[in-house]
Design a protein around this nucleic acid. Structure first.
Length: 590
RNA sequence: GCGGCGGUCGUCUAGCCUGGACUAGGACGCCGGCCCCCCAAGCCGGAGAUCCCGGGUUCAAAUCCCGGCCGCCGCACCA
């Protein structure tokens, strides 16, 4: 093993082989921005495809995918609470350099209300009350807003304010009604999106771990909180209940425990560690997803966030973390129970009806007091305003009207005071078939670039005289490499090259992604393929010329098997785990 | 954002302290050729460096000084 760390080797391979490197280098580079190269994009895309397989395709319609814009009108992020939570007034200690929320500091030290004040007002309060650094007592700078949203203008002339989205989630909330209709008004329903987001981090410094622009894969899972047991129950049965995960609970953390414990899904449900069964279900799927990428189970854990660690919208949050040599435990996904927060806020700010109708099992008979205007009496009271007053009453909410009348005994409409006698009261029996409610939301959210890094680091293997990426075939940049044993100008060598090229071409036609290389010695080519994680290599040699056989070299063991070209494709599918035994599957059906 | 350290071909590095003979040297990698029936072999040749950027000092700057950018480490931030 070289004395270099896995991180250093990955940075080296990243640049040399075209996986990733810092962006805009010829202009000095910009912190927090990375390019992905030809090999990097292949791996990244396949990780993304795995995610889609796990969370969308295999869920059989339970989760659907959409795509919404990156550019977001300001109002959307005001409603979501992001603008408020992204623009903290911060002040800095001139002595020790620590940064603080200015308003909080003033409230603590001066005991006056400071929240929501302008930067200037906060500044004068700091001077007036001699607010100091709570750590070292140093003087503080004038507060300034720390805006973590990328601001932009929508429209070139008189642009309206907009932001780049800091998460894709708002796209799902804002379009909830449309997607819900398209999905034929059925809950539970997950709305997924994979897309780029921007966060103007103050000082992004941890390579791919903390980017200013990155890819989120997430979905909002909408469900009826009153029917969780029966609905989630359909999914939480069978083997999944015994599936094990490592969880560090908030309870344990509060007690000072730092090690995660292993729980089955059943235990998470029965011990009420998760606030809703759907949380447990998606955590399990998420864990299986990471395992399928080659992360060992003991290097995956869930870290439940303590109350002060959670985002503003969440009642319960689990971070899913993967252990790395470079950064320790890093968060690759967050699972938040957002309840009705987002839809509720968008209902409030947009005025749109984002509620869902819940049909009762049996229609309910409801006795209801209701009122009607008494036109004769209103005409007396309103005189020539009669028409307009009647119109106003028609547009009012009957329950509100009733409530006002019962509380105050009168109501003023268009300057006309109407007493109880202006209305008829009636007790009616209504058959109610259901009610409206705001669906609850559980949100699993994955950072693609972080997963990319932890997968690479966990796949990197040092052997005595080679370094390679032990990537699962499903996420390798190429399915297979094809090499001629030798590539000189002799007749046999030219023949090997011809056949090897032919094999590569034919395999490409089947849809496999094939790497072809004839430069340098065969050993060197194996190394080049291993370094970017190509799982299998086909070599055309002298025997091929005699009997139409080739060898398949296995990346991990370096073993070779000889096989006739006719059987090559089937064998490859088998090795790549793509040959499905339909007969055993079909047996389940009948 | 604060403090410390650093930045020379794709990578690692020599040179910097003590300014000049540096058209910036080497190794690995890359490309072309020769050789070779299997795991980074060898030989020959080739391409490849705004010495991070800008300014200053000087007859002369990779080298000294200042500012910026980027990176690493610590602190802070990460809704």
């Amino acid at each position: 093993m070289p004395d270099k760390s896995k991180y250093d080797v990955l940075i080296d391979i990243g640049r040399r082989r075209g996986l990733f490197w810092p962006s805009y280098e010829i202009y000095g580079g910009v912190a927090g921005l990375y390019d992905f190269g030809p090999i990097g994009v292949e791996i990244k895309r396949r990780i993304m495809m795995e995610w889609i397989r796990f969370f969308i395709h295999r869920q059989g319609g339970l989760v659907v995918e959409i795509e919404s814009p990156i550019i977001t009108p300001r109002m959307v992020l005001v409603a979501s609470g992001h603008e408020e939570h992204f623009t903290d007034p911060v002040t800095e200690c001139t002595k020790c350099g620590r940064v603080f929320r200015a308003d909080h500091l003033i409230e603590e030290q001066a005991h006056v209300k400071a929240e929501g004040l302008s930067m200037d007002e906060l500044w004068s309060l700091i001077r007036e009350h001699n607010v100091r650094c709570p750590v070292c007592g140093g003087e503080l700078t004038k507060p300034r807003p720390a805006l973590l949203l990328f601001k932009t203008e929508i429209g070139p002339y008189k642009g309206s304010p907009g932001y780049l989205r800091p998460e894709t989630a708002q796209g799902m909330f804002v379009s909830f009604k449309q997607v819900f209709n398209v999905a034929r008004n059925r809950l539970p329903l997950g709305i997924a999106q994979i897309g780029r987001v921007g966060r103007n981090e103050i000082s992004p410094r941890q390579g791919l771990m903390r980017l200013r622009e990155f890819t989120i894969m997430e979905f909002e899972f909408f469900f009826d909180p009153e029917r969780v047991e029966e609905e989630a129950g359909k999914y939480l049965l069978g083997p999944i209940l015994d599936y094990k995960m490592n969880v560090l609970t908030a309870r344990d953390k509060a007690r000072g425990v730092e090690e995660a414990k292993t729980y089955t899904v059943r235990e998470l449900l029965e011990d009420k560690i998760v606030s809703t069964p759907w949380m447990a279900y998606w955590m399990a799927i998420g864990n299986m997803f990471l395992e399928s990428l080659g992360i060992p189970p003991d290097r995956i854990r869930f870290d439940e966030k303590l109350p002060h660690e959670k985002a503003h919208y969440s009642v319960q949050t689990f971070d899913q973390e993967v252990y790395t040599e470079k950064y320790g435990w890093v968060e690759v996904a967050g699972y938040s129970y957002r309840t009705t927060y987002d839809l509720g806020r968008h209902i409030e700010y947009s005025g749109a009806d984002l509620m869902v109708f819940r049909r009762f099992k049996e229609p309910r008979i409801v006795r209801k007091k209701t009122i009607y205007p008494n036109p004769a009496r209103i005409k007396e009271l309103a005189g020539e305003k009669f028409g307009i007053v009647m119109k106003r009453i028609a547009s009012m909410d009957k329950e509100e009207l009733l409530k006002t009348l019962e509380e105050k005994g009168y109501i003023v409409i268009e300057d006309v005071k109407l007493g109880r006698d202006a209305f008829y009261y009636k007790e009616v029996e209504e058959k109610v078939h259901g009610e409206k409610y705001i669906p609850h939301v559980v949100e699993p959210s994955f950072g693609l670039e972080r997963i990319f890094y932890v997968v690479l680091e966990n796949s990197l293997v040092f052997e005595e005289n080679r370094t390679y990426l032990k990537l699962k075939p499903s996420i390798a940049p190429y399915d297979v490499a094809v090499y001629p044993l030798l590539s000189g100008s002799k007749r046999e060598h030219r023949e090997m090259m011809r056949i090897a090229r032919g094999i590569a071409e034919a395999l490409r036609e089947t849809g496999l992604n094939v790497y072809y290389d004839e430069e340098g010695s065969i050993g060197r080519r194996y190394m080049r393929g291993d370094e970017i994680g190509i799982p299998y290599a086909i070599t055309v040699d002298y025997d091929t010329l005699k009997d139409n056989t080739v060898t398949i070299r296995h990346r991990d063991s370096r073993m070779q098997e000889r096989i006739n070209i006719d059987k090559l494709y089937d064998r490859l599918l088998e090795l790549l785990g793509r040959r499905i035994d339909w007969r055993s599957l079909s047996r389940r059906i009948i």
